[in-house]
Design a protein around this nucleic acid. Structure first.
Length: 376
RNA sequence: GCGAUCGUGGUGUAACGGUAGCACAACAGACUGUGGCUCUGUUAGAGUGGGUUCGACUCCCACCUUUCGCU
């Protein structure tokens, strides 16, 4: 069993659980930073450990380009490469269909990508992707999915759902076969991904089909990409109506603090996003009193910490003025300090959420947080 | 002193006898399973004075200014 529920909220689907992998377990709900090439931008594995981040997600497709699967395999996997101690996820690369510079096209067989470094074309099948993620040695792998764009027609999204389901079967079959000789406790976990855009019926079709396969967890993909928040939350609700309640649910790509609480209330257990680190690089700071932009002129001379309610290493020591100055002048340390703070903020938010759920006070916690964060 | 030359937002520049455009900077915002990328708004300009003209940043004159040359 890769997942255990430890506590449930009485008034919603919110819950505290434990994701158990071969490299350790992580309490849910949790947020994992994006470490595409096994590094969170500007934040070392050591710093992640210091702030209590015990899971990250890297990108198998990007790692296959550099340093390459054979190099990583020779080293003994991405943990040996990075020496990060937490649980390591890998994403398949399906999301890179979203990137015009990498994605060329796809068929029922697989996806054609372009290697941006060499220009050469790469054709990747679900089977190859499973082998790749095993070679990289992550603790949790994601299915190779087909990512419909928001702008796509319902017909196109429907085709993406069919293909994603088909590929999920192939991923599961390949993944099982490749790990047949490995003991259950030492196996890499595999999550299926629900697609379906913002269409209730397509989400249902996708979720029901995936549920037929015995995945270790289920991801909800294709959201948090600019659609209306009400559509996003409704899609989560639709998916949750068909996904098994004894498996972890992973909302992919979500990283906005309020959005995380809304998703947790609707039964989601885990999240990843570049939102906190990307915002940090652009000077956008998360705080308990809301998001603000520290590079704005008014902070040039502010000696306050980024967030007066924060206990992180950055807030204990550095001023807004310093970080404002560093980021304005493109100093890497500025990106690092802001990224550290934003990631710490989400970690602390998740800690408080777990505590509130355990205490039976999730709804009150959420209400209070949103009121203060959004200033109303 | 004489001659030539230059003068357009904070900076660098463009066009034109008929609404002064662009880039950077500044100011504000966006960003959600690659990207210190990128995107979106906003502010802000004709050296001074006169003349010609329906109309002048544009043509003419004087002064001031820049740069160069000559004595």
């Amino acid at each position: 069993m890769a997942f255990k529920v430890l506590a449930r909220d009485k008034h919603s689907l919110a819950r505290v659980g434990k994701l158990i992998t071969r490299s350790g377990s992580v309490e849910t709900p949790f947020f994992m930073p994006v470490a595409t090439k096994t590094a969170v931008k500007h934040v070392s594995p050591e710093m992640l450990e210091a702030m209590g981040v015990n899971a990250t997600i890297s990108n198998s497709f990007v790692l296959s380009l550099r340093p390459g699967a054979s190099v990583v395999k020779k080293l003994g996997g991405i943990r040996a490469l990075s020496s990060y101690k937490g649980v390591m996820f890998t994403d398949s690369g399906g999301f890179q269909m979203y990137s015009p510079s990498l994605y060329k096209g796809s068929t029922d067989k697989g996806v054609e990508f372009k290697n941006p470094y060499s220009g050469e074309r790469i054709f990747m099948t679900p089977e190859q992707n499973m082998q790749l993620q095993l070679d990289l040695g992550s603790d949790v792998a994601m299915c190779f999915d087909t990512m419909p764009l928001i702008a796509h027609s319902k017909e196109a999204v429907s085709l993406a759902v069919t293909r994603t389901t088909n590929w999920a079967c192939r991923c599961k079959e390949t993944h099982d076969a490749l790990q047949k000789k490995i003991s259950k406790k030492k196996r890499q976990l595999l999550f299926g991904i629900v697609q379906g855009g913002i269409h209730d019926d397509l989400r249902r079709v996708s979720a029901e089909a995936l549920t037929q396969l015995d995945f270790d967890g289920f991801s909800i993909g294709g959201l948090a990409l600019g659609e209306a928040k009400e559509d996003e939350y409704r899609m989560i609700e639709v998916c949750q109506g068909y996904l098994p309640r004894n498996k972890p649910v992973y909302l992919m790509g979500a990283g906005n603090p309020v959005e995380l609480l809304e998703a947790i209330e609707r039964g989601c257990d885990m999240f990843d996003s570049r939102f906190p680190t990307m915002n940090a690089r652009h000077g956008n700071i998360f705080s308990w009193k809301g998001k603000y932009i520290v590079t704005n002129a008014e902070y040039k001379t502010s000696l306050k910490p980024l967030d007066e309610g924060c206990a992180c290493m950055v807030c204990k020591r550095y001023s807004r003025a310093y970080i404002c100055h560093l980021i304005r002048n493109e100093e890497g340390v500025g990106y690092q300090l802001a990224s550290y703070h934003n990631l710490y903020f989400l970690q602390e938010l998740m800690r408080r959420v777990r505590k509130a759920i355990r205490a039976g006070k999730f709804k009150e916690f959420k209400k209070k947080f949103i009121r203060e964060y959004e200033g109303r």
